[in-house]
Amino acid sequence: MIRPVPFGALMGALAALVMLLFAISLLTGPAEIGTIDSLTALLSGEESATGIVMREIRLPRAILGLMIGATLGLSGAALQGYLRNPLAEPGLLGVSGAAALGAVLALYTGLSVLFPLALPLMALLGAILATLILQSLAGLRGGALTLILAGVAVSSLAGALTSLVLNLSPNPFAAVEIVFWLLGSLADRSMEHLALAAPFMLAGWAMLLPLGRALDALTLGEDAARTMGVQVARVRLLAVLGTAASVGAATAVAGAIGFVGLIVPHVMRPLVGAQPSRLLPASALAGAALLLAADIAVRLIAPDRDLKLGVLTALVGAPFFLWLVFRTRRTLL
């Protein structure tokens, strides 16, 4: 029997959780600021040190945490739905790998020192190039398998070039800087980062969220969906472009943060009765909650050691995924 949680209640609970974690994220940081003080400083717009910490450091970090988490959860759910593959995740298309390569090049060439926004801009450029390659390889006529193979090819190429840059890095410090960036983090991101990434993420969401009904029909395969009136080529285009825009932008400002996009849809699936259209918004909210929680955790667990967000999500995510596979292996195999 399928007894999903009532959908309205689930969405309400997830939204409340996201708001709570957003508030906690605002209140978490090395500067010891009381709850009341920080909220008044945030809302009053005063030019005190507290006001600046809240508006310039914590607010962009919390908003980015929310938006990037939502991006990863949503795109993971959309890709799993389109590809009908529970192992699909946002990194599959190679867009995040290419974005990371762009960022690494900005670090390597020193452009990021001359001009701080060079890093996310180069990363976005990498993501756009990867999307163009992906579209020309998997095109409008290609099927799901072609898309996966093209994604693997783009991903491997970006990974190889990233390794080459690391290999050629002039000194160990440059290499360490690159590696640390690759681990993924939300620390010290500014409102400029947010302004750069937010439009792409919002555009991506606008392409992915309306796919729900078509993804429902795709549960029965591409041919059945097409004979039920679904324009499968359009669904593929929107899934690819929506993921590329939102995940490319997310990677550009935060680095590669793994496992959120893979795991969140798996956790949400039983709660929404496996319905792809309901999985999309549920995974977006749950992804936001998960990334906000993880970003709070890295600040609490090791405030002095700069524990990277991507490291924590992978550390928690991989064993959790293993447990999921163990629990559902009968249905997966």
Partner: peptide
């Protein structure tokens, strides 16, 4: 789609959705 319905040879069901939800896809 309102004129002709098709049962492909492929009978895979991608996700463990309920029977009722699956049948409701015919209303797409």
């Amino acid at each position: 789609a309102r004129q002709v319905a098709y049962l492909p040879q492929e009978r895979d069901i991608g996700w463990p959705i309920s029977v009722e939800l699956l049948v409701s896809l015919g209303r797409t």
